[in-house]
Amino acid sequence: MMPKARVKAAAWAALAVAVLAAPALGSPVLNDWNVRICSLMMVALSWNLTLNAGLISLGHSAFWGLGSYAALLAANRLGAPLPLSLLIAALAGSLAGMGLAALTGNLRGIFFAISTLAFSEILRVVGLMTPDLTGGAEGLYLTPGLRPAPAVVTFAVALGAVAAVVVCAGLALTRFNLACRAMRNNEDVSKMFGINPLVCRVQCLAVAGGMASLAGGLNLWHGGFLDPLVAFDLHVTVLSQIAPLLGGIHTLVGPVVGSVLTVFLSEGTRIGLGASGYSQLVLGVLLVVCVLAMPSGVVGLWRRVLARRARP
């Protein structure tokens, strides 16, 4: 391994250890930040995965909400402990992703995006209309006795984020990744080289859906309460895009850095400016600035600075 690659691997490992060890300190504030950053990281990485295949999702709150409800119902109805409920949540997300891929067929660009938005809205309405299952507008609480200590939940969320990074790093080395990128560049041409776009989309959304649903499931164990408006909140969809766009799309480190920045910014503005409406305004403006001024995000900017310095 090259020294530079070794430094990078060491940095990733140190980061993983820090995030996983932090819950042991038992600080509620630190745990809260950890959960926010790590769960956002998972949906951000998931969104980045779909974008890598050229699929712009406006429906990540669907996976998030589905995962939340799957975990909640598994725990309340079946008495599933945290790990089993999370497995069920991830599976539910994967299945939903595959279903969405099959339903949207070969829809591209804005047409795919709109259908994912509709998918999320449909689930929200279904959630409101089936009070026997979801508690309807009144919502549902996780059975209190089931909840483990906050540090355990925080550790689980951190583990989920580390797993998501590992999965993304592993996928980057596969031919699946090359198929996704070819498809993003030109789906029609990719077909001429043996790539079946439908299979590729089903695989991609299975992984991304599972990842985002796992994040939703983890958040349920953190929050303990759900109603359809909370579960299928469009805010999740928006944040899942802001983080990669801010950090740098089509990279692994981008969504990770972006998630940290996004949480810091939204919390910082909320604390600094009072009303939470301002924090959304700041994020909105930031998103526009990112798209217009630095399409490769903070990571891209950093790489350009490094490249300029390296030049003699």
């Binding site: 990128r181 041409v189 043996g194």
Partner: peptide, 22 residues
């Protein structure tokens, strides 16, 4: 219609990976 955002080598790689290099 090359895959514009991929490198020249990756373009050729994609040409083979799912067919002759399965």
């Amino acid at each position: 219609q090359p895959f514009h955002e991929m490198t020249v080598a990756e373009n050729v790689l994609v040409g083979s990976l799912f067919l002759s290099g399965r």
